[in-house]
């Protein structure tokens, strides 16, 4: 393995959304804006979690909200992930729309029964009655030196379970638009945020009615030579890599940003693969059993396979617990350099 320390770009270019006025802001502020707008719009929406109130959340994602909405709706909880998740589900089943600040995604492990055995299956088991409209906001990924128990991206655990939606945006605007839609959705949504990207800035539409539908991928760069499919934290690096190989090597990369993993926009992936005939899949989660493996299988099974003129390549987090040392930590996930290398590898095969 080539261990290169990656310096990620400060900000990915914002998506091609045209929703009127925008404001330059961080992912953190986009989250606060999305939740606040939804709470103003619907009195049934509330936020609960450990230290979400006066502390403003472990990652500052609810700073200032206690002052506007009060203790009832910005609800500090005991350190009881099981009770928090169960309570959210029961509240959702009876008419409220809770947002749970899970903080580090690793803590969701203590919530698994409620999410997997209860929320995901309730409507199905009850023959189509009832719904569980709740959002679990999770700070995923490595990058802040928080080591193995505070750095995981566990999205594949949830995409595996029918009945749960999984969203993983990669720009501040997408974070806002998708979080608002997730809150309005009548199902349980696992919403990934990346702790390394809370300060990432971009233009964000200020319209309180700006939303982005779940299940729609976004072509962040149009291209003709190679398709790179990614989501979440890796989008920023993929975009940078795409721009750099275009500049330096004249390779035209199409960047398919999934944004939502469940439901998955298969159409967008297959259309792009058919167009370019080459595909690289990138995510920061561990490679084995990771979500991009599912995307690879889906492509391989589809008619798009016949359009491929190279192997389907994956670039993912290494299959090791996330190490503490900053150099080691950074080397465990795809870097811009490695993404570029893989893109060029695919093109050379032509």
């Amino acid at each position: 393995m080539n261990i290169t320390k990656d310096k990620s770009p400060a900000s990915a270019k914002s998506p091609a959304v045209d929703s009127g006025a925008t404001k330059l802001m961080s992912v953190r502020d986009a989250i606060i804006m999305a939740m606040s707008e939804e709470m103003r719009r619907d009195e049934n929406v509330f936020l609960m979690g450990e230290d979400v109130g006066i502390f403003g959340g472990d990652f500052g994602t609810s700073v200032g909200m206690l002052e506007e909405f009060g203790k009832e709706r910005i609800r500090d909880t005991p350190i009881s992930e099981n009770a928090i998740s169960g309570c959210a589900i029961g509240a959702a089943m009876t008419g409220l729309r809770p947002i749970v600040d899970v903080a580090f995604m690793d803590f969701i492990v203590y919530m698994m029964d409620n999410i997997v055995n209860q929320a995901a299956k309730t409507r199905y088991m009850f023959g189509g009655k009832g719904q569980v409209p709740t959002v679990f906001r999770c700070a995923a990924g490595s990058g802040v030196g928080s080591a193995a128990q505070h750095s995981q991206s566990l999205e594949a655990w949830f995409t595996h379970i029918p009945g749960i939606k999984v969203v993983a945006p990669g720009t501040p605007a997408d974070v806002k638009g998708l979080l608002k839609t997730a809150i309005r959705d009548n199902n349980t949504v696992i919403f990934l945020e990346y702790k390394a990207q809370y300060n990432m800035r971009g233009e964000v539409p200020v319209d309180p009615e700006f939303t982005i539908p779940l299940g729609k991928a976004d072509i962040k760069r149009e291209g003709k030579d190679v398709t790179v499919v990614t989501y979440g934290r890796m989008l920023e690096r993929v975009i940078q890599a795409a721009d750099e190989v275009k500049e330096a090597n004249g390779v035209s990369v199409e960047v398919v940003d999934l944004r939502t993993l469940m439901p998955l926009d298969k159409e967008a992936i297959l259309t792009s693969v058919k167009k370019t005939g080459k595909v690289l899949l990138v995510n920061d989660a561990h490679k084995t059993g990771g979500f991009i493996g599912e995307v690879a299988a889906m492509i391989a099974e589809s008619e798009a396979f016949d359009f491929l003129d190279g192997r389907i390549l994956r670039l993912a987090g290494e299959d090791v617990p996330v190490p503490y040392n900053a150099t080691l930590e950074a080397a465990m996930i795809p870097t811009v350099e490695r993404i570029k290398k893989y893109i060029l590898k695919l093109v050379d095969k032509r």
Partner: peptide, 16 residues
Amino acid sequence: GGMGMAIGAALTQQMK
């Protein structure tokens, strides 16, 4: 499995 759900349902009654 019903315990979490029960307190959530109770929270709804309290908040509403």
